[in-house]
């Protein structure tokens, strides 16, 4: 059982809590405490907006055992509107074909069952095509 590793990351995983560099203003996700842009310490907490664009995506057809029950699934690199890029699954695709440049928004979903059905349920961010709204 790995509990603390997931528990420790809950804020990042559930709602994209990252950091902002107080020196150069860069948004950081995942949080890394040292700004990769200016090299200064960056520990100011900032929740990212959660919208972005698909930079690249792929359908995983040979899944690791932890993800076998979800196979096949789509993983993407997402360029967040806040600046950083992250790796996340695309979800709620239905019959929609993803494409490079697709607009997506963050949702919190089940990432996997840790261990087995008796273990922890790991929740975290995924992205889906921006929901079409009649009023906006």
């Amino acid at each position: 059982m790995d509990i603390s590793r997931h528990w420790r990351n809950r804020k990042q995983r559930y709602r994209l809590v990252g950091e902002v560099c107080p020196h150069c203003g860069a948004k950081l996700f995942p949080p890394r405490d040292v700004c990769p842009h200016c090299g200064m310490e960056a520990k100011t907490v900032e929740t990212l907006v959660g919208t972005g664009t698909v930079y690249a995506f792929t359908t995983v057809r040979q899944a690791p055992s932890d993800f076998a029950e979800q196979s096949p699934y789509v993983v993407a690199l997402i360029s967040l509107d806040d600046g950083p890029m992250l790796t996340a699954q695309l979800t709620d695709l239905g019959d929609v074909e993803p494409y490079v440049g697709m607009r997506v928004e963050m949702v919190t979903r089940k990432l996997r069952n840790a261990d087995d059905e008796r273990g922890l349920i790991i929740y975290g961010y995924k992205f889906r095509p921006v929901l079409e709204r009649a009023l906006a």
């Binding site: 979800q70 979800t91 709620d92 979903r109 089940k110 349920i121 995924k126």
Partner: peptide
């Protein structure tokens, strides 16, 4: 619900 959805994820959204 999709494979990655449950009462918790529905509640969150």
């Amino acid at each position: 619900p999709g494979l990655d959805e449950d009462t918790i994820t529905i509640s969150i959204e």
